[in-house]
Write a protein that binds this DNA or RNA. Structure first.
Lengths: 138, 138
DNA sequence: ATAATTCCTACAGTCACTAGAGCTTCAAGA
DNA sequence: TCTTGAAGCTCTAGTGACTGTAGGAATTAT
């Protein structure tokens, strides 16, 4: 049986975050010691590792909740789990695409300006003031 | 003189967002009509366009506040404005790099699984349960 | 004149935590 | 056994950049 602190150390998830996951229904309410402190077992450690891994991949809490639900029905088809992951992948790709446009635009603005002149002539400021100086839309 | 609604329409910034920018000190407190409604002039429209453009490029509010401050000292050198933009560009690039790693990992997980089998065998679920199945670190 | 629209302030909610206050329990050394 | 310090508990508020709502006042259109 692990205390919340040891569970935190072993998984790299901070103590308040573990309590938060319990509150959000990702971890089932832990058993308690006589003095009302949480006590965890191996299965909790595995589930927390699952959650952390999913969060590291950027999945949000409702998605993780759903994945946990699915993982408990081992005989069901896995199409739903697939769909969640695929949708998230698509969202990540969209974010990348948007950021790449930003990167281009910022790069263009920054490299027009070498910091050696006055604000009045500064391309950074001028580009922000005047959308017409932009190349793409954003 | 524009009402807050017309200013919103012309700039594409929502009415509550305009009030929020005023609260955050990006827009100076607007003049008021007899009945206490905000009235804007051309210069406010330009500043709001500046703010919106900067937000579209992903700059946060403190950065925008600083840029506005700088833009009001037209004789100062523009090194600070440059630095803000360059730092932001670097942050954007970092975000892209992180997302690309995620994309790779998610792609690998998703393409291992065609949705045609049971949860028990599902690569999505298994990959989340077992970090050992990952290629890179994240 | 009246009805429809827009405006006002102030406050709650979003997401995934994080930090703090004020108190209790636990583990280890003397 | 006692003490002390670390770790635990609950509850609340704060983060960033808005968005939404409630309840009421002002403005605009018919």
């Amino acid at each position: 049986m692990l205390s919340i602190g040891s569970l935190a150390k072993r998984t790299g998830v901070k103590v308040p975050t573990i309590r938060y996951y319990e509150q959000m229904g990702l971890l089932k309410a832990a058993e308690r010691s006589e003095g009302n402190q949480r006590r965890y077992e191996r299965s909790d450690l595995e589930r927390l590792a699952f959650i952390r891994h999913a969060r590291d991949l950027g999945l949000d809490i409702p998605a993780i909740r759903e994945l946990i639900r699915l993982s408990e029905h081992s005989q069901q088809p896995c199409a739903d789990a697939d769909r969640i992951a695929a949708e998230h992948l698509a969202a990540v790709r969209e974010k990348i695409a948007r950021l790449r446009k930003l990167e281009q635009e910022l790069d263009r603005i920054v490299s027009h300006c070498d910091g050696g002149h006055s604000i009045e002539e500064c391309y950074v400021i001028r580009a922000l003031s005047d959308h017409g100086l932009c190349e793409g839309e954003h």
